[in-house]
Design a protein around this nucleic acid. Sequence first.
DNA 1: CCGTATCCAACTTGATACTG
DNA 2: CAGTATCAAGTTGGATACGG
Lengths: 125, 125
Amino acid sequence: MSTPPRHEGEIYGTGTPTREAVDRIASRWTVLITHVLEGGPTRFNDLKNRLGVSGQVLARTLRDLERDGLVARRVYPEVPVRVEYELTSLGGTMCPVVREIRQWAELTAEAIGEARAAYDRGQRS
Amino acid sequence: MSTPPRHEGEIYGTGTPTREAVDRIASRWTVLITHVLEGGPTRFNDLKNRLGVSGQVLARTLRDLERDGLVARRVYPEVPVRVEYELTSLGGTMCPVVREIRQWAELTAEAIGEARAAYDRGQRS
DNA sequence: CCGTATCCAACTTGATACTG
DNA sequence: CAGTATCAAGTTGGATACGG
């Protein structure tokens, strides 16, 4: 008596592992951070400046990524301290996916903009 | 004297077309809806039940997708009315990307769960 | 059946200030 | 330099009720 899912929502339902994995990779910051880290280990402020994100948000996102085993954090006990982040081997598996996401976005950004303009034009009578 | 971007944030900065495209595809609902629509035209309530999402959110997401030219809306003037949604050809270009996102999520969900458990174990002394 | 209008809870983002 | 704490503001998700 197996109980096959009635809804796709069950396998991707809130709180399921696959849903959380989707949420992780389908996140603006994960995509952008992974893109930078693909170039090698990167320091906190470096990441911050390259992405133009607030320190708050960056710190939280990096902690989440570290928690999920996707990013490794390395502290060099110098003065002042230096901290570098890099992709783990698990995190490296995101690279092809992220690359496709970015490619799709760049390729279709213009068409989407036009569709949006046309839609908005048609809405206001 | 071209002025190459100093920040990656410039090309993916808030409000830029590429950033909006990333946000569109890197969204939980886009991924799930596209996955269902890949199977052919689907009715509103069908989508709602399969995904386990509230009607409110589904309606908003579908309208946004239609506005971006990714999804087409077809109304059959029956009683009661029947409405079907399907991917446009532009929307169809999301399929390979979405498929990769889902595959990655399913493949790594377990590893991520373990990493998370290990991390949480190490945090509380 | 297919939405929209309203209202509300929860989460996200960011600015600022402060610690090691 | 690398964070954390706190607070303010915006966005998202959902429940419910009602209109086409």
